[in-house]
């Protein structure tokens, strides 16, 4: 049932492609599939599909973890302590509406195309790590940061006072309260934030890879393929981008559903 519409779309696509017979505008499905089936082969004159994919994934993971490692603690603090909430609230509300992509020019101005190889030259032998630029990672961080922060803060804020007070009368202090009450109680909200943050980070990444100075990643690949009018590569890249995003989202949803007490706090 779920597959009916995608299959119909594929059929329509193939018919139109056959009819037009202009692969520069609409590639035949089989040429797209051919690209997808040879992920380790060099595409155009850049690296292989798999390589671009890995580079994109490593970038997004790095940015995502950096964002989460700031956003989760800050969110817990803001959710638990009214003073911290007031302190950060206006700044966050000011920065949040700025689309992550609007940061790109400024971030290019700050970091150029410097990456972690400039900091640790011995990494230049690794294809993966030599392709991690500060700029892209920062864009992903900005994209992933706010959903994680806001969901975490809201999750902690909505813990009923009675839970925290019961824990305190049972002897919970700072750390035990944090690890045994605040974090587990807000875990569903944190996970939701991570899922949304990851999704936005992924979209920002692909866009950031299309920016000047970029020389790898799925975003770069489809932009580069455009210069050669290789629409089959473009579509193959888009499919991979969509599929990875889908898988990650599913993974987080699976994790969220493992928390069986979700929505059971009175």
């Amino acid at each position: 049932m779920r597959l009916i519409l995608p299959l119909l779309l594929a059929c329509a696509w193939e018919i139109v492609a056959l009819y037009l017979n202009k692969p520069m505008i609409l590639p035949r499905l089989e040429s797209v599939v051919k690209v997808l089936l040879h992920p380790t082969q060099k595409v155009l004159i850049t690296g292989s599909l798999a390589m671009h994919m890995c580079i994109s994934v490593v970038r997004v993971l790095l940015g995502f973890f950096l964002a989460a490692s700031v956003a989760i603690p800050l969110g817990i603090w803001m959710g638990h302590c009214r003073l911290a909430d007031k302190l950060f609230d206006s700044l966050i509300e000011l920065l949040r509406p700025i689309p992550p992509l609007a940061w790109i020019p400024l971030i290019l101005a700050w970091f150029g195309i410097k990456g972690i190889v400039d900091w640790a030259p011995q990494l230049s032998e690794s294809i993966l790590l030599s392709n991690i630029q500060y700029g892209t990672v920062v864009i992903i961080m900005i994209g992933a940061f706010f959903p994680v922060l806001l969901n975490t803060a809201q999750g902690v804020r909505s813990i009923p006072d009675e839970y925290i007070e019961s824990a305190r009368t049972l002897g919970a202090r700072r750390f035990s309260l944090l690890f045994k009450v605040l974090i587990p109680a807000s875990a569903p909200a944190i996970l939701t934030g991570l899922r949304i943050g990851m999704g936005i980070g992924w979209m920002c990444l692909v866009a950031a890879e299309m920016m000047p100075g970029s020389s790898s990643g799925l975003g770069y690949l489809i932009w580069y393929a455009y210069e050669f009018l290789r629409t089959d590569v473009i579509v193959a890249g888009m499919i991979i981008i969509g599929f990875i995003g889908f898988l990650v989202d599913r993974g987080f949803r699976w994790l969220e559903n493992r928390i069986i007490w979700r929505g059971r706090m009175s």
Partner: peptide, 30 residues
């Protein structure tokens, strides 16, 4: 507050992420 004076509230305040056993063990773990 200290465990010397424990409170039972009207609202159900068991931690939903813990089993009954681990709820009762909460104060002892700490």
């Amino acid at each position: 507050p200290t465990p010397e004076r424990c409170v039972v509230f009207q609202k159900y305040t068991l931690f939903p992420w813990r089993t009954v056993r681990d709820n009762v063990a909460f104060g002892l773990e700490i």
